[in-house]
Design a protein around this nucleic acid. Structure first.
Lengths: 327, 327
DNA sequence: CGCCACTATGACAACGTTGTCTCCTCATGG
DNA sequence: CCATGAGGAGACAACGTTGTCATAGTGGCG
């Protein structure tokens, strides 16, 4: 900036005025300054500006498990849309389902003075965020609740959705239903399992623990589960996939079976409707989740001091055929 | 920081020393400072730190068309992985295929003093980046080349891949092949069309412009193209989808046809192998694209001053069945 | 006992901006 | 002809850090 000032033959303050479109600069002076800026390729340093003005950085942090997962990237997109409408940018990070990494990212974002943070928490302990929140960085949890603090949270109806899935399958005559979920350490997985049990109870089907597998989905774990639960004479006739990755691996494991069992997937996924038979899903609006959380965060950023809110978004079962397969 | 200093009864500089793990601080003093930091919930302001030290912000910018598109989110993930290994964070932005927005994002990132920028360009004019690059912000273009400047670029072999697709279809007896591409304003779309033409010529098939549609893929545009090119007595017997979104819309448009024409998709996509018949694709390693570009960017960040590089990554045809359908 | 080396600490400036205050000039009107 | 005021511009401090240098105290050694 001082280079520009020197070249234009004005004071550094006048350059600042021009850069900020402040009035009371003589047009001729402004022109000289603009020319100098052009010539030197000057661009003002936003960091210094924010420091001096005490203004915010215009950035929010988003921590998800994996930005590459379509579920989270859709979330990312929804958040970005709201952020853009508020003139903010988004700093993203993948926690890789690792609570240390989550914490590291969150604290790093705080040190960068983001205006607020959206977290899909990997861990169950969030005391480390209390000082930051007290210091004025709002935090909204989404998809999963905070571990041991009270904070704004936006969830989907995991329990109800899974109950619906069970009900749907039972209505189509299934009595032996398997449940393949992600690791029970993950809130949504545990909650959906709870829904599965509750669904069995409500529908008068005995809840059979031997038909449940809760493990991080990989081609191997799912293939093993299929071999155990979905084959042989006592095989389940229907299966509920606890999330989109379970569903995809499950479909792949079943690709060469002569007969695919009835199936419902929690989480919709692209092309589910084009498979044969199409896959019935418990769909939830991921964009809505991101929107709701981001809107809430921006309300906090703009000074909303009301009590922490907990929002639960509805889900709905989309019957596509795979749940109707006769037992 | 001065609050901490006051509470601990030391100077602000000593707090700084403690925060930075500098030696030559008496353990007792350090302990008092740490206690004060804890009590006040102090976290150092990275913006101020970077300003003072003249160090970089530890952030790189990534501009893609749409962070929600699985293609770009995989790219995002790959970039993030490299960035993390270099201790950097990623600021992402969606250009929405709009060159003004791309420019806005890029200049905003520069003003924030990112260490470097990765761009999947939407526009064809990048002169606006010249001052920034000259000022020391490295820029690497990926998936598409820069418009009117010379810069580092990482591409995939669009031309060769499409030629392979045509060859594959011709070998399976097809002579009337349709090509559905994205808007010809997009480099990759234009390049793949060029590959289609070249593939026709090389395989002795007449290139028939009436079998080509180049439009932004939406359910409507694709349905219309299907109605025009893939029905009736003079219908094409095979079709090449110019990218993953074309492919998905195409599959949906064809879902209720009694017979799906032979098909090859440029870009692999999830579940392509599980459709009936599975979809033959021209696959390219999106992660490799992100890795290569990010590695190149960090080489520049670390001072590599060599001439701008142009990298073209190979693609390979994955035959899955849909290309083998008899005409 | 005086000097030196070393440890622990603080004062101060500077990073690149911008807010506040001041100063100068020139036109206007009484 | 002078008071007034508006318009234009600069000096200076401050934002929250850290690098540089200075200083005070301590202990060892000749």
């Amino acid at each position: 900036m001082s280079d520009v000032a020197r070249l234009a033959g004005v004071s550094i303050k006048t350059v600042s005025r021009v850069v900020n479109d402040e009035p009371a600069v003589h047009p001729d002076t402004a022109e000289r300054v603009v020319a100098a800026i052009e010539q030197l390729g000057f661009r003002r340093n936003l960091g210094a500006r924010n420091l001096r003005r005490g203004s915010t950085t215009g950035t929010i942090g988003l921590i998800v498990e994996d930005v590459g997962n379509p579920f989270y990237s859709e979330l990312n997109r929804a958040v970005e849309r709201i952020a853009t409408s508020f003139g903010r940018h988004v700093l993203t990070g993948s926690s890789e389902e690792n609570s240390d990494r989550e914490r590291e990212l969150a604290l790093e974002f705080c040190a960068r003075r983001v205006d607020g943070i959206l977290v899909v928490p990997a861990g169950m302990q969030h005391g480390y965020l209390v000082p930051e929140m007290r210091a004025g960085t709002p935090v909204v949890f989404l998809d999963r609740p905070a571990g041991d603090i009270v904070a704004d949270t936006v969830l989907v109806d995991n329990l109800g959705g899974t109950i619906d899935a069970v009900t749907h399958l039972v209505r189509h005559g299934h009595r032996r239903i398997a449940f393949l979920g992600d690791s029970p350490d993950i809130f949504t997985a545990a909650e959906r399992l709870r829904g599965f049990r509750e669904g069995c109870v409500r529908n008068g089907v005995s809840y059979d623990e031997s038909l449940v597998v809760m493990r991080t989905p990989t081609p191997e774990t799912i293939a093993h589960a299929v071999a155990t639960l979905l084959s042989g004479p006592s095989a389940a006739t229907a299966v509920i996939a606890g999330n989109n990755r379970v569903a995809v691996h499950l479909l792949r494991a079943l690709a060469h079976a002569e007969h695919r069992p009835a199936m419902v997937s929690f989480d919709d996924f692209e092309l589910a409707d084009l498979l044969d038979p199409p896959v019935t899903v418990v769909a939830h609006d991921v964009s809505a989740l991101g929107h709701a959380a981001a809107e809430l965060l921006f309300a906090r950023i703009q000074g909303d001091q009301s009590a922490p809110r907990k929002v639960v978004l509805p889900v709905h079962l989309v019957a596509r055929g795979s749940g109707e397969v006769t037992p």
